[in-house]
C-alpha cells in the first residue's frame, strides 16, 4: 500500500448533481417504502399473533410423574390414533387461565395441585375431606382412551388415567335421597388469574344425574399419557364424560356433593339457550350458532368428520335417556 493520497477521479466519472439528488430521493423513498411496509406487516402481525403463537415452548414435561397403570387396555378404548401429547396439552379451554386456546398452557403454572384436598358431602352416608393422593390411592388407575368432543366442533383422542367415578361414589355411600352429583372447581384468583375477570360466574360448577355419574364410562382422571395430569388439563383431578361435550368435564375439582335437585352448571347459567344441563354430543341438535353435525379432529385430517350420536358411545349410554326428548333436554 502506498502512503500517497488517492488520486481524484476524472471529472467524467463525477455524478451530475441533479442525478445525485435524485439518487438521494430514491434512497429515501426506498427506505420509507421498506419502513412503512414493515410497520404495516408488523402491526397486523401483532394484532393477529395470538392465533399463531408457537406452542412447543409450553409443552409440559418436567416434574410430571409417571403413574402406575393397573390395566393396559379396557373394553371402552378406541383404536383411533391418539392426539399428540403436545396438542392435548397446548390446545385447551380452561377460562380460569385465559380465553385463548394456548393461554392455559402459558399461564397454568400458577396453579398448585399439591397439597390439595377434596370435599365429598351432601347426600352421602360417609362425607369426608380427603387429600388428593390418599383419594387416588384408594383405586387402581386405569388407562382409558376416549374420544373428546368439544362443543366448539373439534375433537381429540386422549389416553386418560383415572378411576371410575362410580367406585368413588360407592365408597361414600349415597343416601336414597341422592339424585344428582354436583362438582366445583377451585376458586382462587391468585392461582387462577382468569377468575379476576367476570367472564363466567366463578367458581366453575358442573353436574351429572346420579346414574350418569355411576356409569362405568364416567372417569375421574388424574393423568394422561401415563403421566400426572398437567395443570392446564385440570390438575390434580378432573371429570371425563366421553359422551358429553367437553365443557361437562370440570377441571381441578375441590368438591363433590350429592344432591336431591339438579345442580346449576356454569355454561348453562351463562347461556341457557346454547348449553343445556345434559350436553350429550348430538349431531342432530345444532348449537344455535353453528352446526354440530361434523367436527375437526385436532392433528388429524383437514377434512371434517361426521359427529356420532353420544360421541360414538350410544351403545353404552343411550338407554340412560330412553323416553327423553333430547332436543328439549339438550
Amino acid at each position: 500500500m502506498s502512503d500517497k493520497p488517492p488520486a481524484e477521479p476524472p471529472s467524467s466519472e463525477v455524478t451530475p448533481e441533479a442525478l445525485y439528488l435524485r439518487r438521494r430521493e430514491f434512497l429515501k423513498n426506498t427506505g420509507l417504502f421498506a419502513g412503512t411496509a414493515a410497520a404495516v406487516a408488523g402491526g397486523l402481525y401483532l394484532l393477529g399473533r395470538k392465533q399463531t403463537r408457537p406452542m412447543d415452548a409450553f409443552v409440559p414435561d418436567a416434574g410430571l410423574l409417571d403413574l402406575p397403570v393397573a390395566k393396559a387396555k379396557g373394553p371402552y378404548d378406541t383404536d383411533e390414533p391418539r392426539t399428540s401429547y403436545e396438542d392435548v396439552t397446548t390446545y385447551n379451554n380452561f377460562y380460569e387461565f385465559g380465553l385463548d386456546k394456548n393461554d392455559p398452557a402459558r399461564f397454568a403454572h400458577s396453579l398448585k395441585p399439591r397439597p390439595w384436598t377434596v370435599v365429598i358431602d351432601g347426600e352421602v352416608h360417609k362425607p369426608q375431606t380427603v387429600d388428593i393422593d390418599q383419594l387416588t390411592s384408594w383405586f387402581p388407575l386405569e388407562e382409558r382412551i376416549y374420544r373428546m368432543r368439544c362443543v366448539e366442533a373439534w375433537s381429540m383422542v386422549i389416553p386418560w388415567l383415572g378411576f371410575p367415578l362410580g367406585e368413588l361414589l360407592k365408597r361414600v355411600e349415597p343416601t336414597s335421597q341422592a339424585k344428582y352429583v354436583a362438582f366445583t372447581t377451585l376458586q382462587d384468583p391468585e392461582q387462577m388469574p382468569g377468575q379476576k375477570r367476570g367472564t363466567l360466574d366463578w367458581p366453575y360448577v358442573e353436574g351429572l344425574r346420579l346414574d350418569e355419574a355411576q356409569h362405568p364410562l364416567t372417569l375421574m382422571a388424574v393423568g394422561l399419557y401415563g403421566r400426572q395430569l398437567p395443570n392446564q388439563n385440570g390438575a390434580p383431578m378432573r371429570l371425563v364424560v366421553p359422551w358429553k361435550y367437553g365443557f361437562k368435564g370440570i377441571k381441578s375439582i375441590v368438591r363433590i356433593s350429592l344432591t336431591r335437585e339438579e345442580p346449576p352448571t356454569t355454561w348453562n347459567l351463562a347461556a341457557p339457550g346454547e348449553y343445556g344441563f345434559y350436553a350429550n354430543v348430538n349431531p342432530a341438535v345444532s348449537h344455535p350458532r353453528w352446526s354440530q353435525a361434523s367436527e375437526r379432529r385436532i392433528g388429524g385430517d383437514l377434512e371434517r368428520r361426521p359427529t356420532l350420536p353420544f360421541n360414538g358411545y350410544a351403545e353404552q349410554v343411550a338407554h340412560l335417556y330412553a323416553g327423553m326428548d333430547l332436543r328439549k333436554n339438550f
Partner: peptide
C-alpha cells in the same frame, strides 16, 4: 407526494396472507 406509500401498504398488507 409519498410515491412509496401505496406500494408499501400493499406489500406490508399482503405479507401476513403470504405468511
Amino acid at each position: 407526494p409519498h410515491p412509496w406509500l401505496n406500494p408499501a401498504l400493499t406489500v406490508g398488507g399482503l405479507a401476513p396472507l403470504m405468511m
